[in-house]
């Protein structure tokens, strides 16, 4: 008797766990999708959705770190960093496989430094993250235009394309990269001092400082990482697209990365969340999109439904604490 009530409680608790809800929603959509349109939950289609989700998932990784770090942290420049990464990658590698490593390094250094500028503005000059990163995205678009100078950018080298889209055991390379990234972030959050400090800072800024965390320095670094992760994603995205088709190719990532983080159960207040949740969040968003396309809802209605579902999900577990008294 007692045992069964305990199980019941566990189940109920599970349903309050955002990751579990998100995962449950994923299965639900796959199930309904397969009923409505047989083949929706086939291996091939799921892999396709996962590939699209992987880029969102990677970018959200950086966003995730910043939001975890608290202090109203947010990076609205990630989308432009994606574009910048793709463009620097293309320009430096010049479609040559031999220059691929060099290109990757160039992307990493450039985006990391620009990301640090975000961090310095937020921590040392106390510019609200929202405005700082948004202004930064304006600066980056200018930099992008300077680099391209209105002329097209060389596309991805053969090797890069192969790494991203080439399949091993039926699974494209980008998914392996994503899995590695997820494992790395999971390790980072669970077995390193960096992770412990980050979570502490996000939960309670003042207590973290008293526990010995150099809050300003760590927070500045986070913005550097976020920029760099988005930049690398852009570089990989270039391999997926094989060419830069227009200089706003990364813009869509900004909003969706924030949403994926929240849908994945990370609190916007900081200090709470897992990357596994974020990854599932990214997949769920993509799945929802595909599902709405599959059941032939036109774009406008799709958008309305997407937004409404999003609000419902946030309502389920993203609410703020009651303030009154």
């Amino acid at each position: 008797m007692k045992n069964s009530s305990l199980t019941l409680r566990k189940v109920r608790l599970g349903f309050r766990n955002p990751t579990v809800i998100a995962l449950f929603l994923c299965f639900l959509i796959l199930l309904i999708g397969n009923l409505v349109s047989p083949g929706f939950a086939s291996f091939g289609l799921i892999v396709n959705i996962l590939v699209v989700a992987s880029f969102v998932g990677l970018v959200s990784g950086g966003q995730f770190l910043i939001i975890l770090g608290g202090g109203n942290g947010l990076d609205l420049s990630v989308g432009r960093f994606v574009t910048l990464g793709a463009i620097i990658g293309g320009v430096v590698s010049q479609k040559q496989d031999s220059k691929l490593i060099l290109a990757l390094l160039a992307v990493m250094v450039a985006t990391f430094l620009l990301g640090l500028v975000n961090g310095v503005g937020v921590t040392h000059f106390r510019i609200p993250p929202l405005v700082m990163t948004m202004s930064m995205s304006i600066v980056i678009i200018a930099i992008i235009r300077f680099i391209t100078g209105g002329i097209g950018v060389p596309g991805a080298s053969k090797l890069l394309q192969k790494i991203i889209t080439g399949k091993v055991l039926g699974i494209p390379g980008i998914l392996y990269i994503w899995i590695l990234f997820a494992v790395f972030l999971h390790y980072l959050m669970n077995n390193t001092t960096f992770g412990v400090k980050l979570m502490a800072m996000g939960t309670n800024d003042y207590a973290a400082r008293l526990a010995g965390v150099k809050v300003k320095r760590l927070r500045t670094l986070l913005y550097g990482f976020s920029g760099m992760i988005a930049g690398i994603t852009g570089f990989l995205y270039l391999g997926y697209l094989s060419s830069v088709y227009n200089i706003s190719l990364g813009d869509k990532f900004t909003l969706i990365s924030v949403i994926a983080v929240v849908v994945g159960g990370t609190s916007l207040g900081g200090g709470k969340g897992t990357y596994i949740g974020v990854a599932i969040g990214a997949f769920l968003l993509q799945l929802m999109e595909s599902f709405l396309v599959t059941i032939r809802i036109d774009q406008s209605m799709r958008q309305v439904l997407f937004g409404t579902i999003l609000l419902v999900i946030i309502f389920m577990y993203g609410r703020e604490q009651k303030m009154q008294n």
């Binding site: 400090k197 979570m199 502490a200 939960t203 309670n204 003042y206 207590a207 200090g271």
Partner: peptide
């Protein structure tokens, strides 16, 4: 205010 990281595991609270 100045001590515990309330939502974080006991483990992390101690080792930090």
């Amino acid at each position: 205010k100045a001590g515990v990281f309330s939502e974080r595991p006991i483990f992390e609270n101690i080792i930090i």
